[in-house]
């Protein structure tokens, strides 16, 4: 096994607001290997986006990384001087966001913005930059790239803008591309194409991808490994097949059960997760999911579980785990 390109160790990012300290990311650790596709799933406020922003030290006031290490090829990004972080951003680790329109400058040509992304890190002549920009637009499957390079962002459709953002992200051949909800603002048919593109690019360029999304289906189509986050913590992690076919954390399981599936028979009721996501200023005692968990036991109320191995390469932070819960359920029925 190769050395990880990125190691996040016990990351804590907190927001110091008037109402109290929001523990947005509370002790997250994971590794990313070269060329890997890693999905981080969870609902709004679970800390997935803050984790991504923390990796590039882009967390805005009043947020701060208060603990942990983020090792990029062995060097800690958390303690790095600002200049060095700026150098890593866009060159070694690129990031694309949900809304491509607000990430692009409306008064500059798309091609120019891609060239700019390259020139920020390497000295190249205008001519080389232009041909490279065209090549990048071709790589993200934008038709008629030679003329499109002269277009302004508003002349692109939503899907094309996101392609342009990806092209910009790839401009400096980064080792990691972080995509934060890259398809959420797009229509399904366009979403499918962008996901296909990311999958192809991952294979062509060997760029590792961290995909951040709330959509389980999107993860299933693109990622090899998945982290499921809830209330600032990773509650389950493992290979995508394990997570989808044999989820062990009740949250992962419930989430999968609560989505209507196109391929399943129409059920009369969806399984819903009752209650609300917790307040991250005063998270619940014990397991953070226990107030909403239908399988909780007495221990869950006061004892906070950490990630425990539950299968090959799979870990869940749960005292019960679905294997035991469903077995008991079966017994109860019999």
């Amino acid at each position: 096994m190769t050395a990880p390109v990125l190691q996040v160790k016990d990351l804590k990012t907190q927001f110091f607001t008037d109402d109290g300290v929001v523990k947005a990311v509370d002790g997250v650790s994971f590794d990313l290997h070269p060329g890997e596709t890693l999905g981080i799933v969870g609902e709004s406020g679970c800390g997935k986006s803050v984790t991504a922003l923390s990796i590039l030290r882009l967390v805005q006031e009043p947020g701060r990384i208060t603990n942990g290490q983020i090792l990029f090829k062995g060097t800690d990004i958390v303690t790095m001087p600002d200049d060095d972080v700026r150098d890593i951003r866009g060159k070694d680790i690129a990031m694309i966001f949900q809304d491509p329109l607000s990430s692009l400058n409306p008064v500059l040509k798309v091609g120019y913005q891609i060239e700019e992304a390259m020139e920020a890190h390497t000295r190249i002549s205008g001519k080389v930059a232009l041909s490279r920009a065209i090549q990048l637009l071709k790589q993200v499957r934008i038709p008629a790239a030679e003329s499109r390079v002269e277009d302004y962002p508003h002349q692109f459709s939503g899907g094309m803008r996101q392609r342009a953002m990806i092209a910009m992200g790839l401009a400096n051949k980064p080792s990691i591309l972080i995509a934060d909800e890259p398809t959420t603002a797009l229509d399904v048919t366009v979403q499918a194409q962008i996901l296909e593109l990311l999958r192809d690019l991952n294979q062509e360029t060997k760029t590792a991808i961290i995909l951040i999304t709330h959509n389980m289906g999107v993860v299933a189509g693109l990622c090899k490994r998945v982290l499921v986050m809830y209330a600032g913590r990773i509650v389950e992690q493992g290979p995508v097949e394990q997570i989808f076919h044999d989820p062990q954390h009740p949250y992962t399981w419930s989430l999968l059960q609560s989505i209507p599936r196109l391929d399943a028979d129409r059920k009369d009721r969806l399984l819903s997760i009752e209650g609300l996501p917790p307040d991250l200023i005063k998270p619940p005692s014990g397991c953070r999911f226990h107030p909403r968990c239908r399988f909780r036991i007495e221990r869950c109320f006061h004892d906070d579980p950490s990630l425990m191995d539950v299968g090959p390469d799979q870990a869940a932070a749960c005292w019960v785990t679905m294997r035991r819960a469903l077995a008991q359920d079966g017994q109860a029925r019999a």
Partner: peptide, 20 residues
């Protein structure tokens, strides 16, 4: 048909086999 084929299904095995 195109809409249906584009909707992601939360199952990695099925997703790998589907064609949009």
């Amino acid at each position: 048909k195109a809409l249906l084929s584009a909707i992601p299904i939360p199952d990695p095995d099925i997703q790998a086999k589907r064609r949009i």
